[in-house]
Amino acid sequence: MAIVAKIGGRTFPRADVLAWENKRIDAAAKKIGVAPPSVGGVAVRREEFVGIKQALGSEELLRRLTWNARVADRIGVAQASVSGRRRMCVTELFVPGGSAKQFTEWFDAITFTSNQYEMERACPDHFVLRFINGRQQVLETNGGSPFTALFDINYDDVSSIATPVGQQFPYRLDGVAIGSNGKPIGGVRHQFRDTPDGIHARLLVEFPLPMIGRVIRGHRWHLACEFSNWLEAAIAADKG
């Protein structure tokens, strides 16, 4: 699909986001100690890589990334304790086709039914995304971070999110990231609306204020990658 991403005030075609994803497949494979998928188109390599991750299984991926997760958690908890203020990471997508209502309903369904295939194929840096004990467990590399983070997302209590709701966006996906100390370390407020051409998505992640710019800049592309793939999958499912 000819999805257009707006990142850092500039617009990028779908091909640029796919090129970023293709490079991240190699980086993510190295992170978990496996050979990257064979040379081919990004769509083929995406499916091969999610197959590799699923063959290893969640527990093995958690084991392989234990050290990364411990370091990332200590950093995140420490950063969040410094200040309650947040650093915002924003990406916008303009999608030709689909509906905001159908997409958010589809996304809620794959989230709350713990559909790990759809969750983990959307971005190479998604290693484990599954629902456990009422929260979503997430093991992923955030944007430009050298470490892979492990945290929970609470979808029930989103009162700590600092970003106000945009009245022009009637559909939202909100959640709060929880660190190992049980306290919020960030949050997401992803907002969607219909346009004459399809969907306008305003994707926003709140990081702790001290988060370095490298992570923020990288995570803009992470957002463009995962949501472009999710939007394509949702629209395909609706047509199917």
Rank of each mutant, 00 (worst) to 15 (best):
D125K: 07
G134R: 14
D194A: 13
V138H: 05
R63M: 03
V50I: 10
N154K: 03
G143F: 03
V188H: 01
K30I: 02
I32A: 03
I178G: 08
V4K: 15
A162G: 04
I178D: 04
D152W: 12
V71I: 14
M119G: 02
F127P: 01
A19Y: 09
F112E: 04
Q102D: 15
A35E: 08
A201H: 04
L150E: 10
G198E: 13
P36N: 08
K239H: 08
V77G: 07
G240W: 04
D238F: 01
A201R: 11
L173R: 13
P170L: 10
N133F: 12
A109H: 07
D16W: 05
I216K: 08
L139A: 02
G76S: 10
E120Q: 12
N229A: 13
Q137F: 11
A122C: 09
I75K: 12
I25H: 05
V188F: 08
N154L: 11
I132Y: 01
E105V: 01
I235E: 06
T11E: 15
E232I: 03
L203G: 09
V17A: 11
N229Y: 07
G9E: 10
A69F: 14
D238P: 02
Q168E: 15
F12D: 00
A201L: 06
G40M: 12
N181D: 15
D238S: 15
A19L: 04
V215G: 04
T195V: 09
G213E: 14
E92M: 05
F207K: 02
Y171R: 13
K23G: 01
T11G: 03
S99E: 12
T113L: 08
P96K: 12
F147A: 08
A28E: 00
G33H: 01
G240K: 04
A72L: 10
V205Q: 08
K31S: 06
S180A: 15
M88I: 14
I185H: 05
A43H: 12
G51Y: 06
R74A: 12
E105S: 06
I178F: 07
A19P: 01
Q191S: 15
D26A: 08
H219M: 00
S114D: 15
A233K: 09
I3H: 04
